[in-house]
Amino acid sequence: MTIDKELLEILACPVSKKPLELSEDGNFLICKDSKLVYRIQDDIPIMMVDEAIPLDEWEKSQGKG
């Protein structure tokens, strides 16, 4: 991933305003607090609430459910 680490640190969930966790594959940002997952597409995090994936759905799609 080419996302700047320092800038990733200031990124927060638009709902909870809490810090996000980067997924292992580097393609998603996870908010445990609001239970929402945000995609990273072409190095641009998609921080739109309308486009966020519910955490349980995302875990299932990742084979973790």
Binding site: D4, L7, L11, A12, P14, K17, I44, I46, M47
Partner: peptide, 26 residues
């Protein structure tokens, strides 16, 4: 996508200015 094409070295986020995806005092 247009912004990124013109400025490939800058950081862009897709989001809503009424619900900013950043921590306080960032």
């Amino acid at each position: 996508a247009d912004a990124r094409g013109r400025h490939p070295d800058l950081e862009f986020r897709q989001g809503d200015a009424e619900n900013l995806p950043f921590e306080n005092a960032a």
